[in-house]
Design a binder for these strands. Structure first.
Length: 493
RNA sequence: GGGUCGAUAGCUCAACGGUAGAGCAGCGUCCUUUUAAGUCGUUGGUUCUGGGUUCGAAUCCCAGUCGACCCA
């Protein structure tokens, strides 16, 4: 009598569900089991003593990502946070019953194993398994082992799969963690205090961007998600926290692109009794230490390859410093650019292939040239200084030429990486700048910030660093989505 | 918002108006030091969705969904 069990062999999910059911029927529930580990894979590999096979015992755990079944023995590899390590499971070591159980494991299952380290004929340090345990059954198959997961939509929506099968993604996103960690240590070593300021705010200040609006039910008021942390951190300077920083999520309700995610991470740092010159030293020290200690170029230099331009960016060379005006004059080939009437500026900008919005002010036309024609060409680290006063209402005016600001914009790889200011601390000038910027929309002026300035803010240098863009640069990524674990996508169909 | 391109087996991809295929994965067999292991056999499809053209559509047309790139 044959039973009429339907053939499910083509349906991997059904096959794995059946295996799980069989395990449970045998009194084993892999989701209840746990295992003790002594080593991550990389640490276990380092624990091997050359020439002394099977003297060091380790317990490791991870996801099965390679299975090579050789009949009465198997070579498998497991993946953990540090990478992969090979396990060798022999029938006459683990016993017939256990071996039969091991043979039923699937790619993707999470197992723990204890055994001794040895080196295979081809020289790979491997765990000769004495005991093992299944601690989580994978009911879904892994993506293909050789090509990995390449559908970009699935990579972003199911990042966990990307991380399992695409080593480059895992390395890139781990590097981001190390970058952020390094920044914290770097600043803490210099007596900066990390603070946390509100994400929900009554008015969106500190930058020009459209905010997300949300509603607080109990208070029955609308709030916006912050578009910068600047005005809060400056209040900390007023409060006597002389060196502060925040690595915070910022939300801007604007387009999504290769360079923009609606939520992104910004470092803002403020240092009392410093100025934009001090910020130059700080950012240069920070970035060179990041390249030296985190990226660690193989040749010992401070150069990293810039994917988009094919050039090498040298963090160890001279960092160019150039005035905004000089860049504009060079790009337009027009020494009289700033004296030209608006109509001539428009004509000349359009002749350069730029589309100029009719409502733009003159500084916006000029800045369009900067962002479209100049910034993308600034591959090596470049401090652009003496920006026109209209561009940053929160910075101090230059003493010798009040039409420009004591600020820089650090541009690397054709991207703005870090703007920094000598911070405006004159409450009256600040109010005037705000009012000029706000025009009719005075209700958006942060009056409490101005009140805080009236209490006296020490002179200070301040700087913002886009962490995502920095990570694009440092990891050679093509898109911001590649350095954000879960980039924003339209909700799936 | 506009333009271009894409969506086919769990994954990576073929087929481009005439019976939807391959590799990996799966299932079954052989193999106790493999390295994308090898070996023999084998299952698996609402070709993104909905319309249309056609004797016949994965393929051509229209609309939609989602994604990528470029532009705004």
């Amino acid at each position: 009598m044959s039973d009429h069990t339907p053939d499910i062999s083509h349906d991997q999910h059904a096959v794995r569900r059946q295996k799980l059911a069989d395990l449970r029927a045998a009194g084993l529930d892999p989701f209840r089991a746990n295992c003790a580990t002594t080593h991550f894979s990389g640490d276990a590999l380092k624990a091997y003593v050359e020439g002394q096979d099977n003297t060091v015992t380790v317990s490791v755990a991870g996801r099965l990502v390679v299975i090579r079944d050789m009949g009465k023995s198997q070579f498998v590899k497991i993946l953990d946070q540090q990478g992969q390590i090979q396990l060798y499971v022999k029938k006459d070591v683990v016993g017939d019953e256990a071996y039969a159980q091991f043979k039923k494991f699937d790619l993707g299952d999470i197992v723990g194993a204890t055994g001794t380290l040895f080196k295979t004929r081809s020289g790979e340090v491997t765990v000769r398994v004495d005991t093992f345990i299944l601690v989580a059954k994978a009911l879904r198959p892994l993506p293909e082992k050789w090509h990995g997961l390449s559908d970009p939509e699935q990579v972003y929506r199911q990042r966990y799969l990307d991380l399992i099968v695409n080593a480059e993604s895992r390395a890139r996103l781990m590097l981001r963690s190390r970058v952020v960690s390094h920044i914290r240590r770097f600043l803490e070593d210099r007596s900066f205090l990390e603070v946390e300021t509100p994400v929900l705010e009554a008015t969106a200040g500190g930058a020009a961007a459209r905010p997300f609006v949300t509603h607080h039910n109990a208070l029955n008021v609308d709030f916006v998600l912050r578009i910068a942390t600047e005005l809060r951190l400056k209040r900390m300077l007023v409060g006597g926290f002389d060196r502060v920083f925040e690595i915070g999520r910022i939300f801007r309700n604007e387009g999504v692109s290769r360079r923009h995610n609606p939520e992104f991470t910004m470092l803002e740092v403020y240092e009392a009794y410093s100025d934009y010159r001090g910020m130059m030293r700080l950012i240069r020290d920070l970035l060179t230490s990041l390249v030296r200690d985190v990226i660690r170029p193989a040749d010992g230099s401070l150069r990293i390859r810039h994917a988009a331009s094919g050039q090498e960016i040298d963090f160890g060379g001279e960092w160019r410093e150039v005035r905004y005006k000089d860049l504009i004059i060079a790009a337009t080939g027009d020494a009289e650019w700033f004296a030209r009437p608006k109509a001539e500026k428009i004509a000349r900008a359009e002749a350069m292939g730029l589309s100029i919005h009719p409502g733009w002010e003159e500084f916006e036309i000029t800045n369009e040239i900067f962002s479209k024609q100049i910034e993308p060409t600034l591959i090596q680290p470049t401090f652009v200084t003496h920006l026109p006063r209209e561009l940053c209402p929160l910075a101090k005016l230059n003493r010798d030429d009040p039409s420009v600001l004591d600020v820089f914009e650090l541009t690397i790889g054709g991207m703005e990486v870090a703007p920094a200011y000598s911070e405006q601390n004159d409450p009256d000038v600040q109010r005037e700048m705000f009012e000029r910027q706000a025009g009719e929309e005075r209700q958006n002026i942060d009056q409490d910030f101005l009140l805080a300035l009236e209490h006296g803010m020490p002179p200070a240098g301040g700087m913002g660093v886009g962490i995502d863009r920095l990570c694009i640069l440092l990891t050679g990524a093509e898109s911001i989505r590649d350095v954000i674990l879960f980039p924003q996508l339209r909700p799936g169909a």
